[in-house]
Design a binder for these strands. Structure first.
Length: 943
RNA sequence: GGGCGAUUAGCUCAGUGGGAGAGCGCUUCCUUCACACGGAAGAGGUCGUAGGUUCAAUCCCUACAUCGCCUACCA
């Protein structure tokens, strides 16, 4: 047997055991026959990510499940991977190259993407290192990346199939545009934030020369340059006469009509609203209803476009706002302004204020996919846990809008669509709208006389040509997006219709979430029918935060059902957000971020994991507090020292089964029964995703039952018992310890492995030991033990409250009220003496009340502590008085109940019985206390 | 605007239709041969407010207050 140091030091063992597990393949599923599959796919963190508290909680929960299921005889796959995180990653690398004075346009698409891959190779694995620190038992041999070859094939397959079915289409409409990221965003990617804005009132003069004007209110005066109407409510008396008339739109020289529309709220502002169909979602709808022109006055860069007029073109949108206000003021057309709080959409990646822009984008027609995804939650094929999320989920799914999936960035899955300029008709060319631009290089002779072969931008820069030279000599082909798109599984090099080699690929890439939507099956090998796919799909449980319920979970449901014809997972455990100790959301800008790695450093991964599990109550945010982590480090130390105690006793385990032998004492049987109960509670907790219950249950058992009671009770036997008694106790201690570290292992993998290997010198790993299940309860032992516990607590209570010095070795007398109580107490006199520091304990059914004794009244016993002259009678009287008051209060309450006729008539029989029993117990107790008070008072009087 | 959740001991939070629990903190005592990262004994709560349902409400219902979150087109 090995020696343990006095205190547990996590840093010395964690990395060693992790390497041991990984090298020996313990994280790989065990394909042994007969094992049921249990699979989890990790919510892929962004490659740019580093581990934050959310990941830590998420990973800990998954790991607890994975380890528990492994120990419970499942073949477990926990599949790890990362997400390419299109916009986020592109932003990071763009900042990186900006330091070298580069930008992606100068580099060219291919060179830039290569740069991102290089970056990914260097930094992308960071988070996996961190997950290893936490102890995550992922099967790293199956690690995937949303942009790797296999997953890209899956993306391509899905796109083509949806395209062929008409579920993917292009349309020109308003979308949320981030002028900084220079891309479209889906509705979900816009974060709304309340901001203190201003509401400006502008005067639009009537065009009839009457000198009258209409006042409109707006928060965005610069958009007035793109107004194409002013709308009023059709019933609005104030404006009825004016409907159909024209207004002079200031600063533009254009005239716009006054239209009537139900959507206008006559109560708001002046009841007249300016309509800018090309830059506002409401106005877009109104514009379409009334056939208004769409004038785009703001460009992709967030600056004013030429259509805004010469005076404003090129200005930043906010500078333009100022200038418009100045100009209107000068014309006397500013009616006024006032503060106006409103919510403004921001890019979820860079926080820039989004701009609604009219562009052509790719969409997924989502309603047909959503139907089935709703049904599977309704009929329970997928369970959301906690189910309070059901309504949120249904609400969102039922109102779901088509999903904009194209992004104008480079890092991602490029849309597998080509356009043929030679197939474009004249009407295509003339149509206003988006063009796809392609820099096209033909073999050319440069100014210095050298000649250059044609090629892509990247190839040419690689050949040493400057950006200027390339751009100056290139031809730009523009293909209107209205040309029929050609969608294909394999890259096209020529037009399948006309054979033209000039076809241009759609430059857009797919929304990152498009590929993550396929994660549960693409990672398992789909579209091939692999062994993994057959074994592990559908996955068992998805563990995720509610913040990506719609981004990710809902979309996985739709895609899984569509392409696998089966739900992607059975259970979705939705955990809360980790907040700081004050309940604030952790964020870099607030500086209240707790770094999980620092926590692991300070307290060890086990303590940190256990805290997260203990915090993870369903349906509530997690408030993280370092003090609690510290507390759980103490807990590990407690277990560690309990182990030292067991080892130091120096009695090796005999190997005899503790459940079939007949030489166990009451405390032994009791702790075994409590162990069984605890194992059951932990199993139940885990299977119901009540991680806090499971954690608390094992914590309480180890500390307060095993250490506080059983180990203390074991001492008399170990120090003074017979050889047989010693061996029985030692065997019980070892047995409970061994089982307890198994139960604890999913929560605390490292320390449990350490104890398993060093104390029990076992082969293999605790990871493959069976999780304790179905251990026998011993209700007799638990009931009998209550007498012993009562006797000890009663005596301790007297000692504590009467402040009897611990050095004073008292004598105790216990008058028992039943044969069972007597038998139990008699059998455990040594333990009572040891735990209460009594030099003598007398037990019997008819002991006389000694004079000058303190007393405690318990079920089936009166405990006397004779203090021969030392008793502070007043203190004891006060103590008993307090006790009596409590009992009397309860009795009064019960009596009130019984005197209530309706209660007697209507309360169910079992409740009635229970209350009656309670009353009779209390009455007995009351009488005994009163007797003792009377006796004591008499004794006091004699004094 | 709509929806959801929260409100329980000093703090952080569990919990249940039959007079409320934990951890930390606090008080008192104890360096007793696993652990002072320890042990023992205590104090501490009209379970947000007001109504209602019920024999019985901290728990169910309604309203209100406060605080969060999600969602929405009020210019």
């Amino acid at each position: 047997m090995n020696e343990l140091k006095k205190n547990y030091s996590p840093e010395e063992i964690e990395d060693r055991w992790y390497a041991f597990w990984e090298e020996n393949g313990y994280f790989k599923p065990d394909f042994q026959a007969g094992k049921e599959a249990f699979s989890i796919v990790i919510p892929p963190p962004n490659v740019t990510g580093s581990l934050h508290m959310g990941h830590a909680l998420n990973a800990t929960i998954q790991d607890i499940l994975a380890r528990w299921k492994r120990m419970s005889g499942h073949k477990v796959l926990w599949l790890p991977g990362t997400d390419h995180a299109g916009i986020a990653t592109q932003n990071v690398v763009e900042r990186e190259i900006a330091k070298e004075g580069l930008d992606r346009h100068k580099m060219g698409r291919e060179a830039f993407i290569e740069k991102v891959w290089t970056w990914k190779a260097e930094y992308g694995g960071r988070i996996f290192h961190q997950l290893r620190k936490i102890g995550a038992s992922c099967d790293w041999s199956r690690e995937r990346f949303t942009l790797d070859e296999g997953l890209s094939r899956a993306v391509r397959e899905v796109f083509v199939r949806l395209f062929d079915e008409g579920l993917i289409y292009r349309d020109g409409r308003l979308i949320n545009w981030c002028p900084r990221c220079h891309t479209a965003l889906s509705d979900l990617e816009v974060e709304y934030e309340d901001m203190e804005g201003k509401l400006y009132s502008l005067r639009y003069p009537l065009a009839d020369g009457s000198g009258h004007h209409i006042v409109v209110a707006t928060t965005r005066p610069e958009t007035m340059l793109g107004d194409t109407a002013v709308a009023v409510h059709p019933e609005d008396e104030r404006y009825r006469e004016l409907i159909g008339k024209n207004l002079d739109l200031p600063l533009t020289g254009r005239q716009i009509p006054i239209i009537a529309d139900e959507q206008v709220d006559p109560q708001f502002g002046t009841g007249a609203v300016k309509v800018t169909p090309a830059h506002d979602f409401n106005d877009e709808a109104m514009g379409k209803r009334h056939g208004l022109p769409f004038i785009r006055v703001i460009s992709e860069e967030g600056t004013m476009s030429p259509e805004a007029g010469e005076r404003y073109a090129g200005l930043d949108r906010y500078k333009c706002r100022k200038r418009v206000i100045e100009d209107l003021t000068e014309l006397g057309l500013m009616e006024g302004e006032k503060k106006h709080p409103h919510s403004v959409g921001h890019c979820y990646r860079c926080k820039t204020i989004i701009e609604p822009l009219l562009t052509i984008q790719w969409y997924v027609k989502i309603a047909p996919l959503a139907e089935e995804a709703i049904r599977v939650v309704e009929d329970g094929r997928v369970r959301l846990i906690p189910n309070s999320w059901d309504n949120n989920y249904f609400g969102w799914m039922r109102e779901i809008k088509d999903w904009c999936i194209s992004r104008q960035i480079w890092w991602g899955h490029q849309i597998p669509v080509w356009y043929c300029p030679d197939c474009a008709t004249e009407s295509d060319q003339q149509k206003q709208g988006d063009f796809i631009e392609h820099i096209f290089f033909e073999p050319m002779t440069l100014a210095d006389g050298s000649s250059v072969m044609g090629g892509t931008y990247a190839e040419l820069t690689a050949a040493g040509l400057s950006h200027e030279a390339i751009v100056g000599n290139s031809k730009i082909i523009r293909v209107p997006r209205t040309v029929k798109p050609l969608c294909a599984r394999e890259d096209l090099t020529s037009c399948p219709h006309c054979g033209s080699g000039k076809i241009i690929r759609d430059p857009d890439v797919l929304d990152t979430w498009f590929s993550s939507a396929l994660w549960p099956f693409s990672t398992l090998g789909w579209p091939d029918t692999t062994e993994d796919l057959k074994t592990f799909y559908p996955t068992s449980t998805l563990v995720t935060g509610f913040d990506i319920l719609f981004f990710w979970v809902a979309r996985m449901m739709m895609m899984g059902l569509k392409f696998m014809d089966e739900v992607p997972f059975r259970d979705v455990y939705i955990h809360a957000l980790v907040r700081d100790s004050k309940g604030q959301k952790m964020s870099k800008s607030k500086g209240n971020v707790t770094d999980p790695l620092i926590m692991i450093d300070k307290f060890g991964a086990d303590a940190f994991r256990f805290s997260l599990a203990a915090f993870a109550a369903q349906g509530r945010d997690v408030r993280f507090s370092e003090e609690r982590v510290e507390g759980y480090r103490y807990f590990i130390n407690k277990l560690w020292n309990a182990t030292r105690f067991i080892l130091n006793a120096g009695i090796p385990a005999s190997g005899k089964d503790v459940y079939t032998r007949d030489d166990l004492a009451l405390p032994d049987k009791w702790i075994l029964s409590r162990l069984s109960a605890t194992a059951g509670e932990v199993s139940r907790g885990l299977s119901q995703y009540r991680f806090n219950d499971a954690a608390n249950s094992i914590y309480h058992f180890i500390w307060h039952e095993f250490c506080d009671w059983y180990i203390e009770l074991s001492k008399p036997a170990l120090y003074q018992g017979s050889e047989v008694e010693k061996q029985a106790v030692a065997d019980t201690l070892f047995h409970v310890l061994e089982k307890v570290i198994r139960i604890l292992h999913p929560f605390m993998p490292y320390v449990t492995e350490e104890l398993w290997k060093t104390v029990f010198e076992k082969e293999g790993s605790i990871m493959t030991a069976a999780f304790p299940e179905g251990l026998p309860r011993d209700v007799d032992a638990e009931r009998e033990m209550a007498f012993l516990l009562d006797a000890v607590t009663g005596l301790r209570s007297i000692r504590g409250e009467l402040n009897i010095a611990p050095s004073l070795e008292v004598r105790a007398e216990i008058k028992t009220g039943s044969a069972e109580a007597e038998r139990v107490l008699r059998g455990n006199i040594a333990a009572i003496m040891k735990l209460t520091r009594a030099r003598e304990v007398q037990i019997g059914p008819d002991l006389a009340r000694p004079e000058g004794a303190a007393v405690a009244v318990k079920d089936q016993m009166e405990i006397y502590l004779p203090l021969e002259g030392l008793l502070d009678i007043d203190a004891e009287l006060a103590r008993l008085g307090k006790e009596l008051a409590k009992v009397e209060e309860s009795i009064a309450f019960l009596n009130k109940k019984f005197s209530n006729e309706s209660f007697m008539k209507k309360a169910p029989q079992d409740v009635l019985e229970k209350e009656k029993a309670k009353l009779s117990d209390l009455t007995g107790k009351k009488e005994k206390i009163e007797e003792n008070i009377a006796a004591l008072a008499a004794a006091g009087g004699k004094r």
